[in-house]
């Protein structure tokens, strides 16, 4: 009896567990790292951003230099508007990933402004998606900064790899290979769209 009561008291006295909560980071640096990891942990977001990066590298060898400011602007807008605008669904992300894939496959020579707009949209939607239902001020600033860094570097990293291979190898087959690879993003997007739209 005494043992049961003492166990019950111990349980009642315990604090909430934050193992998987956003607040699990004990300091700002941990929160920053958690934020950076978010885009990589959400597959639809990672697929879209990697596709954007590939497209940027296919579009122009040094395309990332042109569109990176737009990527940052889109991410900031998405994180800032997050609590005030409707939530973004996975089908939006996958629809945009499909569009990006098609533009990449045909290597459409988009004007700089159009490419920047596409890049801004492709970082705005995932950043809003990652905000989920959190209200303004709920998420700590280092976490938000981390998400912004994660979103832009995810795309910039892919663009950098494309740029490096194009510059270092230089063979025409490299660009063809990347166009074939970006078609995989399209294929993945089509399947993800089907999974999202299938009757439950």
């Amino acid at each position: 009896m005494i043992r049961s009561v003492s166990i019950l008291l111990a349980l009642l006295g315990s604090g909430p567990a934050h193992a998987h909560a956003f607040e699990s980071g004990q300091d700002a640096y941990e929160l920053l790292l958690q934020g950076i990891s978010q885009p990589w942990l959400m597959l639809p977001v990672a697929v879209l951003l990697l596709g954007l990066g590939m497209l940027t590298g296919i579009w122009r060898t040094e395309g990332v230099i042109v569109v990176w400011p737009a990527m940052i602007a889109g991410a900031l807008l998405g994180l800032g508007l997050g609590p005030f605008v409707p939530q973004v669904e996975v089908i939006w992300l996958m629809g945009l990933a499909l569009v990006i894939s098609i533009v990449g496959i045909i290597a459409l020579p988009l004007p700089s402004l159009a490419m920047a707009g596409l890049a801004a949209l492709a970082t705005l939607l995932p950043s809003r998606f990652l905000m989920e239902t959190h209200v303004f001020g709920e998420l700590p600033l280092p976490f938000l900064i981390g998400m912004g860094i994660g979103i832009t570097t995810c795309a910039a990293l892919a663009a950098g790899v494309v740029q490096a291979t194009r510059e270092q190898i230089g063979h025409v087959a490299v660009l063809i290979g990347w166009r074939a690879l970006i078609s995989w993003i399209g294929a993945i997007s089509i399947l993800m769209l089907a999974f999202e739209l299938r009757p439950v």
Partner: peptide, 15 residues
């Protein structure tokens, strides 16, 4: 192949 296969896959998923 992967693109069209994904369309076929989507048909299968959607029943």
């Amino acid at each position: 192949f992967p693109l069209v296969m994904a369309l076929g896959g989507a048909m299968g998923v959607l029943g």
